[in-house]
């Protein structure tokens, strides 16, 4: 069974697509289940201006990518980077054991975004 967050974000993912000019792009994947997500992000100073994704995978991982985009657009990079694991886990709602790997996907999206922006700044 899928919770409403997963169903809504998987059924109508509004952030699917490509940005015309992305400041950062990164890809994550789960080698076990084969899920792949490509993420693009554009910045406006310290804020995240826009984000789009492409995903191949189960419903929960597609939903996780959409949730991630919505959660970062308009936020400062510092604000997104400060998120703790518990806060990130809660973003997907209650998951079945078979869907828990999508929390890892969401964590990884946060990590990769931090890494990408940090490398740029460094």
């Amino acid at each position: 069974m899928y919770n409403d967050i997963i169903i809504d974000n998987f059924s109508h993912p509004e952030f699917v697509g490509d940005l015309e000019s992305a400041d950062h792009q990164f890809e994550i994947g789960n080698p076990v289940c084969g899920d792949r997500i490509q993420m693009q992000v554009s910045l406006d100073g310290d804020s995240i201006l826009d984000s789009r994704f492409r995903a191949w995978g189960c419903a929960t991982s597609v939903a996780a990518a959409n949730v991630f985009c919505r959660s970062i657009i308009g936020k400062s990079f510092a604000e997104v980077s400060a998120r703790q694991t518990a806060e990130i886990s809660a973003m997907l709602g209650e998951l079945e054991p078979s869907q828990q790997h999508c929390v890892n996907i969401l964590n990884e999206l946060h990590r990769e975004l931090s890494l990408a922006v940090s490398l740029e700044e460094g």
Binding site: S98, Q100, H101
Partner: peptide, 9 residues
């Protein structure tokens, strides 16, 4: 076929 957990499918 479906996701099973983090380590298997």
């Amino acid at each position: 076929s479906a996701c099973s957990n983090n380590k298997t499918k």
